[in-house]
Design a protein around this nucleic acid. Structure first.
Lengths: 229, 229
DNA sequence: CGTCGCCTTGAGTGCACTCAATTATTGTGG
DNA sequence: CCACAATAATTGAGTGCACTCAAGGCGACG
């Protein structure tokens, strides 16, 4: 039965968050027909900015960065992709961003052109992508005031709170930051040293506890929230 | 004939740039049936952030700003809307941004809910909105590195070049900046004084000529481009 | 002619940057 | 398992840029 939800999709960890969520079996089968799984190890690149755009994909697990190279050689992260998020632009023949894995990442990837054709034949899928893109736009715009005005302390505090939220960690339970200090600096538009200074500052003030390079516990979310605004 | 392109649309200045462009007469008639014209004078607000989202619209002439209020009371412009651009989010019941006119502006506005229903019935229109939204996302992300890293001089230079491009002005022909210094500061994430200082700096260096508060000529685009990045 | 809004110019300060050195952690081979 | 190397993070010192605060100029408009 071609209209049944494919077994791979039914078992997918991102099944209920990705573009696939809410699609009828018919649309899901159409997507499944052109998709395949791919694992990226940390640091590997999915698309290079400027190169012809070959693939798009749904992130199943792990963390991707969407980044741009600046004239002075620095890198600015313009988006972080979490499980369920969509990577790439089905209608752009040339990639505008470099998309790379910050951790080991599991993706369901689609050839860009085939995906574009499939979307044209399945308005329900296209509608989902539209809503998702509108949400992504809102997220990008939320980051604008942060990068434009907020002081370094506020950026770091807000980022830590956001990471805890995304890791679905409540209270002061420990969790692992999926980004290095360098990646955080790229995302927050700061120098590595500045990120480091404020993180150790928070630790010295008793707002957080650190263990190893990536382990962290938020001891005082209220104080962190106060410093984030 | 209900499937004819309505006369108002045929005469519209934004007919070939707005969401309407490329729509078949049938879709155009559906949009026309729920749309009406509205003129905003400079400073008037179309939507307030946080209020229920009532309307969306296509900008026909003039300039709108899409702005967010920060915790410290400052305003950050997260998008500028030029003729043909789409304002609002048809699927969001609450406005996330304050949208206001920077100049007198002419819009074709649609009740949000009716527009959402119309889009669901007309996949071609929805597809156009998707492509437009993807382009807007790219534009927002292009602004991110600017606000995160670029020095004030680079931001102002890039902005002036962009304004000339949007005004479709070539060479050193004079044109009118549609924004006040204050609005430019809100868009560039700078203080008014900083914008003013760099503009007069460019004038003193012979890169631009000013006439009145809004009039400007770009005398040396190459030098401006050099200073923009 | 005076007022109001917008813009310009000046002085001084603070924050985040760069450069530089040290420490901590992770990974690898003996 | 330990020593070592390589990478990542921290810490320190000094500087520059854009900010705030403040005053003055310029035009538009009544």
């Amino acid at each position: 039965m071609p209209s049944e939800a494919p077994a791979r999709c039914a078992a997918c960890a991102a099944r209920n968050r990705a573009l696939c969520a809410g699609l009828a079996d018919r649309e899901l089968a159409a997507l499944h027909a052109i998709g395949r799984r791919r694992v990226l190890s940390a640091g590997q690149v999915l698309t290079w900015a400027g190169d012809p755009a070959i693939v798009c994909g749904n992130l199943v697990s792990g963390l991707l960065k969407v980044a741009r190279q600046e004239a002075d050689g620095r890198t600015q992260i313009v988006g972080l992709l979490f499980p369920g998020d969509f990577a790439g632009d089905p209608f752009d023949t040339r990639a505008t961003d470099t998309i790379a894995a910050l951790t080991e990442a599991d993706l369901c990837i689609y050839p860009r052109e085939a995906l574009a054709r499939t979307l044209e034949q399945h308005p329900a899928a296209e509608r989902l992508l539209l809503r998702r893109t509108l949400a992504t736009l809102t997220a990008a715009r939320r980051a604008l005031p942060m990068l434009a005005h907020a002081r370094a302390e506020a950026r770091v505090a807000a980022f830590l709170l956001d990471m805890a939220y995304r890791a679905e960690v409540s209270g002061d339970r420990p969790f692992v930051l999926p980004l290095s200090r360098g990646a955080m600096a790229e995302a927050l538009g700061l120098a590595i040293e500045t990120v480091s200074r404020h993180i150790t500052g928070f630790r010295d003030d008793g707002l957080i506890a650190l263990s190893g390079l990536r382990g962290i516990r938020l001891l005082d979310r209220v104080a962190l929230a106060r410093r984030s605004g």
